[in-house]
């Protein structure tokens, strides 16, 4: 095959791949991945709103809209809101805001790119494998007590009851 024919073929490929690339980019905007152990999908975009579902690490959530750092998502047949800090792969900027000064090779930090890196880095680095090795080398450390500590889970209903019984009325955050 001559060089010219190769170039023609690759040029055709470019068009096809450009479409594929656009599709992949679009997909990145329409789903987010859970990067925390678990997270609640809530009826409203508030931490004390009732949970409609629980999503686990690496679950993919279909994004419907984004508002004030929360994503309205669809997951396991339920629709609700998930906080932006628990997911990655979608836009992390305000709803409808155009990201400033972003280019593929630009120096400015891209919130979307950083969040996609979070997905790429999931399970890497200081992970379970490293902890296992560390435990083996430090057998006297109280990891079992840490496991016990982690098992304590306070249900949303109990939190709400505690707030009500203590007459706690939230104030707007002061900066």
């Amino acid at each position: 095959m001559s060089s010219l024919r190769l170039i023609k073929k690759l040029s055709c490929l470019l068009v096809v791949q450009a479409f594929a690339f656009t599709a992949v980019c679009f997909a990145a905007y329409s789903t987010v991945t859970v990067i925390h152990k678990k997270t609640s999908i809530r009826a409203d975009k508030q931490f004390f709103a009732p949970a409609v579902a629980t999503a686990k690490y690496m679950d993919k959530l279909k994004v419907i809209e984004e508002k004030g750092g929360w994503y309205k998502v669809s997951f396991a047949g339920k629709t609700g809101w998930v906080h932006g800090s628990a997911v990655a792969g979608g836009k992390k900027t305000g709803a409808g805001k155009k990201k400033k000064g972003l280019s593929l090779f630009g120096k400015k930090e891209d919130p979307k790119k950083v969040s996609q890196d979070d997905v790429a880095l999931a399970g890497k680095g200081f992970n379970e494998q490293v902890e296992k090795d560390y435990k083996k080398k430090n057998p006297k450390l109280a990891f079992k007590a840490v496991d016990e500590m982690e098992k304590i889970n306070v249900e949303d209903k109990k939190l709400a009851g505690f707030i009500k019984a203590g007459n706690l009325k939230e104030n707007e955050r002061v900066e």
């Binding site: 680095g125 006297k140 109280a142 007590a145 840490v146 016990e148 500590m149």
Partner: peptide
């Protein structure tokens, strides 16, 4: 790009935190 502590992921922070907690709970009985 990953240079400083702020570049650690939440997951890495968690494993670091678990080990720090294990050290503390070895010295201080719950």
């Amino acid at each position: 790009l990953r240079k400083g502590f702020s570049d650690l992921t939440d997951e890495e922070e968690y494993y670091i935190g678990r080990a720090v907690a294990a050290k503390i709970l070895s010295d201080f009985k719950p």
